[in-house]
Design a protein around this nucleic acid. Sequence first.
DNA 1: CTAATTAGCGTACCTGACACGCAGTTTTCG
DNA 2: CGAAAACTGCGTGTCAGGTACGCTAATTAG
Lengths: 248, 248
Amino acid sequence: MSDENGLPAEIALLWGLREMPRRGRKPSLTITDITRAAIEVADAEGLGAVSMARVAKQLGNSTMALYRHVKSKDELFQLMSDAAVEVPPEIPPDSGWRAGLTLWTHSVRRVLSRHPWMAQIPMHGPPSGPGNLAWLDCALGTLADTPLQEAEKIGIVMGLNTFVQGNLRMSVQLMAGFRENPEAFGRSYSRALKQLVDPRLMPALGRVVAAGVFDYDSLYEESDVEADFALTLNFYLDGVAAYLARRS
Amino acid sequence: MSDENGLPAEIALLWGLREMPRRGRKPSLTITDITRAAIEVADAEGLGAVSMARVAKQLGNSTMALYRHVKSKDELFQLMSDAAVEVPPEIPPDSGWRAGLTLWTHSVRRVLSRHPWMAQIPMHGPPSGPGNLAWLDCALGTLADTPLQEAEKIGIVMGLNTFVQGNLRMSVQLMAGFRENPEAFGRSYSRALKQLVDPRLMPALGRVVAAGVFDYDSLYEESDVEADFALTLNFYLDGVAAYLARRS
DNA sequence: CTAATTAGCGTACCTGACACGCAGTTTTCG
DNA sequence: CGAAAACTGCGTGTCAGGTACGCTAATTAG
């Protein structure tokens, strides 16, 4: 269950703190290698392509060799998502909390656009790995100069994180859906809505449809998605600003 | 590809508008039955338990019979998530947009707490089923009395939806993680952070840890999660309010 | 040098999605 | 009215993927 350090096993794993056995054959594979190979596969072919066999092939090993280093595929996923976040951005100390959180958010966005599969990996607990905790620290740092309680800072940052992750997850899903079936985002969608939405039953939606809001060749324009993201992000940050103002 | 109605096949399916074949054996199974059975299984045993075989057993049919009605498991998932949303709330017409959206949000929350598995089903396109569109209409209706453009309303509502879904998804994941390994949310977590977080490398996080923010027997208290949700929801709504104020 | 310990791996099992084709049913048409 | 056509339910089979188990070889402690 727990390391000699007193750490829970899965946390020790993420931090690379499992004690190395002194006797026995020397490992030719490391957890780092396995994690890196898995990330390569996920980057190149998507998370769906990450099977134990595929990762092993990437390394030139056999499938079952991996199980000497990771207890399960899910454990490998956790390792991947802590490793792939890389390093949080350097935030200029005097930039103010809002600019800081905005920069932080866009950095998250950049990481997730490099590794879209990260949005699909489920979290089983609070952030525990060195990568995720470094990002958490980075976000908290932007609030250092505010008069907030530490617990409030955590609430705000976790809320922001959930928000950003949720947004990106949705983007990734829709992007995948778009690649698979672009038609579902185009004229045939707006035509279907015009046909199916009865203005008597759904008046508000009927107005939107009638206004031609969906009449585009593709509802999935990168720039639109980004603009919507920026808009809603600013809603959240405005709320934080109001909260701060209320508190001083 | 498309129905005689000119509708894309997957949309026609969601609306139950596939034309019934005139000749041939009468079906003893309906899509509705299959969907209902699948929802029963998911409610009772989680989405992971929903296999074609399990759903078929629920119905007393053979596995392969389902494929006469559903093209793939994923298609069944889409049917499930449109059916399980049920009916959106009645929002009193004079309640104002903020109260309306708050009520809407809590209704979403209630639906998802009845069917937690919904948060795990990936979306492949814009909302297309009768259930989801009814909810969309309901949310849009709350903004009817505002001077917003229709496109802005959609942006605000979709943003809110993404936000709520993201929050609930995270809750569901953590809830599952908690059931499986409560220890990861308790004292051993805060002890691990105290040990691993070096205040020189992660000063902001170090302060939070030192302040004892994580020193609880369980970080996953229902009431806390709900409070955090309400807090961040209000951030978003404050932002919408500010946007509205700016626009008048 | 021997026993203990550990890494890599081949084999095997199980679960689950789904392709295919047969058999029985219902409707249409000659 | 009878045969052909259309369609449903289903048994069988295939393939992919996770992972338990146990063997073998390497390495080190005693």
